[in-house]
Design a protein around this nucleic acid. Structure first.
Lengths: 210, 210
DNA sequence: ACCTGAACACCGTTCAAGT
DNA sequence: ACCTGAACACCGTTCAAGT
């Protein structure tokens, strides 16, 4: 074995912890969750996978719940990005709102485990870290801003924007959750079909008072 | 303390298992869940509480997931009852639909742990028993029937009833979930306020084509 | 400061054995 | 048929000890 380089590509990377072990932990946890579900995620396996002690993560996270909160936080950052892309990619307007709804559900059914950690009550509400809360409301704010813009153009009724946004959010969140739960299968209709119909109904629900 | 009757109120009821241990297990599991959350539910504690061996329940349930499925099934039966009561109590019609939405969210925020077991993906979709599925769709059917009745009266647009019902369900389910998750608190608005607004918007969404 | 290794308390589940 | 008690494999977390 020629040690030509200070070899970084060994089987057991015992120098993974050069500062961003924290980031590596979050990434690895998200990956195994995505592959096998949240309930099958064990801290020991995460440590092993990273070639690190099983207890190493306690230098970076208070406990498992805190690690999950960090994973959820990453999820909200991704979700926010998808929403913004959809909104802008569709040229804003009512089509932009439709696109956001579809992108939202698409995100959820593409990353069901991740999505469940974000909303499944794993975080123990009330004690969830501020950085979690911050990213969650940043994602929500994208929707609020979009609705305000639509109100200015006279395309959406002028109710209190946050309440309006919560209503829309609840609808797409409901479609996403039911889809993840496999509760929409019986009629060869899935979440993708339902969100298509739902954005249509939402238009009627949000139409300005005549 | 006069033992006038064949005392059924002893500290350690060692004859709990006279045939309906299964029912007792489901009831006890639901109770501790309700009190301390799903994640704090242990089979050992349930057995102890019932004065029975920790492994006694394996005579009645394949594993913990199956017990939880039975608990969820009971939840759907209760939910169905609440929905029917609300619908009929409000004299059917659009007011009946509003009442159902409000009763739905009321059920969820009153029994958050129970509700989460019903929808939180604990049941491992695909392998969930038929009796679970049966009661879930029985509850859903109440909504479908109501919407069909409203369509007949010309009060609701004549879209495919199941799709219409799924849309309504997604909305109230979303409100319920966000409420349970504590995601609606920031603006001193809670799930009860939101569902009030939501049923209003739903009326617009469901209005017949003019 | 950061990580390790052994230990602790706890869990779901299995299984031979009792009645 | 139904239940028990001991045992197994596994988990999150703690803590003294190493560098």
């Amino acid at each position: 074995m020629a040690g030509s380089r200070p070899d970084r590509t060994r089987k057991r990377p015992d120098t993974y912890h050069h500062g961003d072990l924290r980031r590596a932990l979050v990434h690895e946890a998200a990956k195994t969750m995505q592959a096998h579900g949240v309930e099958r995620l064990t801290l020991r396996a995460v440590g092993d996978r990273l070639g690190v002690s099983r207890t190493a993560l306690y230098r970076h996270f208070a406990d498992k719940a805190t690690l999950l909160a960090a994973v959820a936080r990453e999820g909200f950052i991704s979700l926010r990005g998808e929403l913004l892309t959809a909104w802008q990619g569709a040229g804003r307007g009512l089509e932009g709102l439709d696109a956001m709804g579809i992108a939202y559900v698409q995100f959820a059914i593409t990353h069901p485990a991740h999505y469940r950690v974000m909303f499944g009550g794993f975080i123990d509400s009330g004690i969830k870290d501020p950085e979690f809360e911050e990213q969650a409301s940043a994602a929500f704010q994208v929707l609020v801003d979009a609705l305000i813009a639509l109100q200015r153009e006279g395309l959406v009724r002028r109710d209190e924007p946050r309440q309006l946004a919560q209503f829309v959010w609840a609808t797409v969140h409901g479609v996403a959750m039911l889809g993840i739960d496999g509760q929409l299968q019986h009629q060869h209709a899935d979440a993708r079909d339902l969100i298509q119909y739902a954005v249509d109904r939402l238009r009627a629900a949000l139409a300005p008072r005549d």
